[in-house]
């Protein structure tokens, strides 16, 4: 997964957002929350998407709005998670306390 280029990561995020965000045109730097484009389910959908699509674990300390506000911000978060020395991704059935029941 770390072999993905920045362009591939932003492309996948854009594809996901296109299904969930009410925006005619959205730039990579546009703030999706400030624009009121998302509904109340979106925060958890976004966590699940990023974790599954990029094999990363979103933790409490990541839940800064700055990490999710735009395509660029999310791509940067993914890059940090994939960086050498970053925490290993959580497995679906690992014993890390994140079994299959909790939705993210």
């Amino acid at each position: 997964m770390s072999a993905l280029s920045d362009g591939q990561v932003t492309g996948r995020i854009r594809t996901f957002l296109a299904r969930h965000v009410r925006a005619e045109k959205m730039g990579d730097e546009d703030d999706i929350f400030a624009a009121g484009w998302v509904n109340s389910l979106f925060a958890m959908q976004l966590v699940l998407f990023l974790e599954k699509e990029f094999a990363i674990a979103i933790e409490n300390q990541d839940l800064e709005r700055a990490n999710f506000r735009s395509v660029r911000a999310m791509a940067d978060l993914v890059a940090r998670k994939h960086a050498p020395g970053a925490e290993a991704p959580r497995g679906v059935t690992s014993s890390s306390g994140s079994g299959p029941l909790p939705p993210g």
């Binding site: 389910l41 958890m44 299959p100």
Partner: peptide, 14 residues
């Protein structure tokens, strides 16, 4: 979808 940890699970449950 929940088993696959798919983001679509959120809406599917609703």
């Amino acid at each position: 979808l929940r088993r696959e940890r798919d983001p679509e699970a959120i809406l599917a449950v609703a």
